[in-house]
Simulated scan of single mutants.
Amino acid sequence: MKRPLTYRPAQQPSRYEQRRDADQRRGSAAQRLYGARWRAARLAYLAAHPLCVMCEAKGKIEAAEVVDHVRPHRGDLQLFWDEANWQSLCAPCHDRDKQSAERRGVLKPWGDDAWDR
Rank of each mutant, 00 (worst) to 15 (best):
D113I: 15
D95C: 01
Y45F: 11
M54Q: 10
G75T: 14
A48F: 07
G105P: 12
K2L: 13
V66R: 01
G59F: 12
L46P: 02
A47Q: 04
N85T: 06
R8Y: 06
C52H: 05
Q11L: 04
K60H: 15
R8D: 10
W81N: 07
Q99E: 00
A63M: 03
R74Q: 13
R103G: 07
L5Y: 12
A44H: 02
Q78F: 12
S100E: 04
D113H: 15
M54E: 12
L89T: 08
E17W: 11
Y34T: 05
R32A: 03
V67E: 01
A44E: 03
S100V: 03
D82K: 00
R26A: 02
R39S: 03
P4I: 14
D112P: 10
R26N: 10
Y7L: 13
D95H: 02
D21A: 15
S88D: 01
W38D: 01
P9Y: 08
G75C: 09
R8I: 13
A91D: 04
L46V: 00
K2S: 14
Q99A: 01
A64K: 00
N85I: 04
V106I: 15
E62A: 10
R117C: 12
M1R: 13
A114H: 14
D23I: 09
D23N: 13
R25Y: 11
V70I: 10
R37I: 07
A84T: 08
Q11P: 02
R25H: 07
P13N: 06
E56I: 02
A64D: 01
H73T: 02
L107V: 11
Y34G: 01
R26H: 03
G75E: 06
D116K: 12
Y7F: 05
G59A: 12
V66G: 01
E17P: 05
Q18L: 10
D97S: 09
K108I: 11
A63R: 06
